[in-house]
């Protein structure tokens, strides 16, 4: 309960491009709320995203990620608040090809070939990129003539990506793009994505895979119960959990470990100790002074995983 009720634990977002007027932002959500009956999917959410940012929307199921994305595309009407995309209403931004999305449950038109369906998407947008370029960007050139219903899960997902990328949008939105993909499929997918975001475009993706955040996002926004509970560069959000871990092997179990400076917890597994500490440097100096004959020391920095678990579990 503590976290969501507090004034949100929001770390300042990383260096943002200074913008002269509000419309310079790529995306602005201003006190937006949306309920489905008794369920508050999104409550009073405000979020600004600048051009060129790569933002991960992170949160458990039901945190409001898909609803937020639906509002960015004008598929979901907000009950209150204002959504602006590239300085205009979401539906206009879609129509002008400024924003394009890969939705979570989107299917592909059965019975057509890869090149045809990507070509169809291209024909709907005002300033598309060449279809061949979108295909090669998505790594689909080899299967361009294959029917879309005969693709692997990873290939089908990259077709969806190509259908959004071919719009040549300023903002690309991906809703859990790698859900239901195996490890190889996920790796292939993110390779394609990195090639795309290297072109300096704004990328917003929802995920609940933490390992996808650190490598692929410049900013992470953690959602919980439809609200932002953390917002910052991945390293900053990782530090919210506040604890590094020092592990080492020792033959004895000295009782004074728990009283070392900075240590908030000690646990043992066979003869290997784990110390959780907010100040690993200080703890380590004190540990060396103890002269326990420890060996195989290992220091792990705070992980996004820990922060995420802390934020989402304490919030629920």
């Amino acid at each position: 309960m503590t976290y969501t009720n507090q004034s949100q634990v929001t770390t300042p977002p990383h260096t943002r491009a200074p913008h002269t007027k509000p419309s310079a932002g790529a995306i602005a959500l201003d006190s937006v709320s949306k309920s489905y009956g008794p369920v508050h999917a999104v409550r009073d959410l405000s979020l600004e995203i600048s051009p060129g940012e790569t933002v991960a929307l992170l949160g458990p199921n039901g945190a409001g990620k898909s609803t937020t994305i639906g509002m960015l595309l004008g598929l979901v009407a907000a009950d209150a608040g204002k959504v602006t995309v590239c300085g205009r209403q979401p539906r206009l931004a879609v129509a002008h090809g400024r924003i394009a999305a890969m939705l979570q449950d989107a299917g592909l038109m059965p019975g057509v070939r890869v090149r045809e369906i990507v070509g169809l998407a291209a024909s709907l947008y005002p300033a598309p990129m060449p279809v061949g370029q979108a295909l090669s960007l998505a790594g689909l050139s080899d299967v361009a003539k294959r029917r879309v219903d005969r693709l692997s899960g990873g290939q089908a997902q990259r077709v969806r990506f190509a259908m959004a990328a071919v719009a040549n949008p300023e903002i690309l939105v991906l809703d859990e793009p790698t859900r239901a993909l195996d490890v190889a499929g996920r790796t292939e997918f993110w390779q394609a994505m990195q090639a795309y975001s290297a072109s300096g475009r704004t990328l917003v993706f929802a995920t609940h895979y933490l390992d996808e955040v650190s490598g692929n996002a410049s900013r992470v926004v953690v959602l919980m119960h439809g609200q932002v509970v953390a917002d910052g560069v991945p390293e900053e959000v990782s530090k919210l959990a506040g604890a590094s871990t020092i592990r080492f092997t020792a033959d004895a179990r000295p009782p004074q470990l728990g009283t070392l400076p900075g240590v908030s917890g000690v646990s043992w597994r066979h003869n290997r100790a784990s110390l959780r500490t907010a100040e690993p440097d200080t703890t380590l100096r004190a540990l060396m002074a103890l002269d326990l004959g420890w060996r195989d020391i290992e220091i792990t920095p705070p992980s996004l995983n820990d922060s995420f678990l802390m934020l989402t579990q304490e919030g629920s």
Binding site: A100, A101, L103, A106, L108
Partner: peptide, 9 residues
């Protein structure tokens, strides 16, 4: 597919 279409102009 109709969901996908809704996201396109």
């Amino acid at each position: 597919w109709l969901e996908q279409v809704r996201a396109m102009p």
